[in-house]
């Protein structure tokens, strides 16, 4: 990691701790801010948070590893999470999954080499009456078909609309 990147992370974490409070209860909100802006919670970030909140870094790692929306390894700018639960399964999530893998050239659990896309499974997104459903970062898309997968990916690639804002790496708050 470059020294300038460290400095920026250091400053960002300082600002987020000031915003949420230097207490244990602030741990998850601070980690969520890091995840949103950096697409990963690096070991350096964990150590930094631990120092600020006066807890052991293993405590921070333990929390990061528990929650599926917090991730120690770098994820893409756009994280696509396809619901695999039974209602979406019945409406054809397997075909959508196959098409996503084909169009992105990666398997579930992987990130494209250009760092743009990660593909993951999600458990029930609460869109069971409109499946198959998927999340792209914070946005939900329903009744997805194998044909519309391409359009969704293109929309991300072109980075227009609200999707672009949320996936920007290193965006300051």
């Amino acid at each position: 990691m470059l020294v300038t990147e460290r400095l920026r992370l250091h400053d960002d974490i300082g600002a987020w701790v000031a915003k949420h409070g230097a207490t244990r209860a602030a741990l998850i909100p601070v980690l969520q801010e890091i995840q949103r802006s950096y697409n990963e919670i690096s070991e350096y970030a964990m150590q930094e948070v631990a120092d600020r909140l006066d807890i052991h870094p293993v405590e921070v790692y333990s929390v990061v590893s528990f929650y599926s929306f917090l991730e120690a390894k770098a994820r893409g700018r756009f994280v696509i999470r396809l619901c695999r639960t039974v209602s979406c399964d019945m409406t054809g999530k397997d075909r959508v999954a196959r098409q996503l893998e084909n169009d992105l050239g990666i398997r579930f659990g992987e990130t494209t080499r250009d760092g743009n896309f990660s593909l993951e499974w999600a458990n029930c997104l609460g869109m069971c009456d409109q499946g198959p459903a998927l999340l792209i970062n914070d946005q939900v898309f329903t009744s997805v078909t194998p044909e519309t997968v391409h359009d969704l990916i293109q929309a991300c690639r072109k980075s227009f609309g609200p999707l672009a804002v949320q996936g920007q790496k290193g965006r300051t708050h």
Binding site: T85, V86, S87, N123, C124, G126, C128, D129
Partner: peptide
């Protein structure tokens, strides 16, 4: 934290 599969009324 409506996570039960098949539940979406809280949303």
């Amino acid at each position: 934290d409506e996570g039960e599969p098949g539940t979406f009324k809280d949303r």
